[in-house]
């Protein structure tokens, strides 16, 4: 499996995907910097009791659509590398199982988004320190802000990887991903079982961990279905 990941990483060399991975979390932190810069008085009053909590709250709000959009683009870029010159036929004629190839793509997308989420944590932490919210920052809260939506969106990582790999024309997976991003933005009042609601971490139990868990569990199921579908289909 490590061989496959190493091979996939070589293919990512000099790709703008790396810029995207950096730019996503950077953009979120930058927008929050502007947000707090412009409305410093108002926001520090609003979150007077818990400044760090306020920042985490605001940043988490922006991070969700950024993540949904980012995972859509990343999945599509990963698949496009193979689609472009129809490299699938070369790749899958190698002595490597199709299951492993598919798993490699899923792992790569998960890994890249994990890096993004970690960068988000770091950038928001730096922003909070710059805003002088105190050095007693809540690391757990920051980690939850960064990693819960990541886990909750695992379902969509699996869906987008499956879609992007299954079809050469990326218009469909991109449309699905973008519509999903919009849907997740307005899914507050949707029922809890709707996957698009999970990345918002809103649920009737009031514990975001449930949303994260649901997204992760369902993501594994979808990954599995995608892998079975991929191994069964002929290579074009």
């Amino acid at each position: 499996m490590l061989k496959i990941l190493a091979s996939d990483l070589i293919k990512m060399k000099r790709k703008i995907i790396w810029l995207l991975i950096f730019l996503g979390p950077f953009g979120v932190a930058a927008l929050e910097a502007v947000n707090f810069g412009l409305r410093y008085e108002y926001l520090t009053k609003e979150y007077e009791k818990d400044l760090w909590g306020g920042l985490i709250n605001e940043a988490g709000f922006l991070a969700t659509p950024a993540l949904m959009l980012g995972l859509t683009l990343i999945a599509s870029m990963i698949a496009s590398i193979e689609h472009q010159t129809n490299a699938w036929k070369q790749l899958l004629a190698l002595p490597v199982s199709k299951l492993r190839i598919f798993t490699g793509k899923m792992l790569l997308a998960s890994l890249l988004l994990l890096i993004s989420s970690t960068l988000l944590l770091i950038f928001v932490l730096i922003l909070g320190l710059v805003l002088k919210f105190g050095s007693d920052f809540p690391l757990l809260g920051l980690a939850k802000m960064a990693y819960y939506p990541y886990l909750a969106s695992m379902t969509f990582i699996a869906v987008q990887i499956w879609l992007s790999i299954s079809m050469k024309n990326q218009a469909i997976p991109l449309t699905v991903g973008i519509l999903g991003t919009i849907l997740s933005l307005i899914s507050f009042r949707f029922p809890d079982w709707l996957p698009w609601k999970w990345p918002l971490l809103e649920n009737s139990w009031g514990d975001p961990a449930y949303s994260a868990l649901a997204g992760l569990a369902f993501g594994i199921v979808i990954y599995f279905l995608g892998a079975v579908d991929f191994t069964r289909k002929d290579v074009n």
């Binding site: 091979s7 293919k11 590398i81 010159t85 036929k89 070369q90 002595p95």
Partner: peptide, 25 residues
């Protein structure tokens, strides 16, 4: 094997293309 039109990763050099396959082999 080489099936139909050649497959390659255009942004990579020839050596990097081969390296991506060599690792798997």
């Amino acid at each position: 094997s080489l099936v139909e039109y050649p497959s390659y990763y255009g942004h990579l050099t020839a050596r990097e293309n081969l390296e991506a396959i060599r690792i798997l082999l």
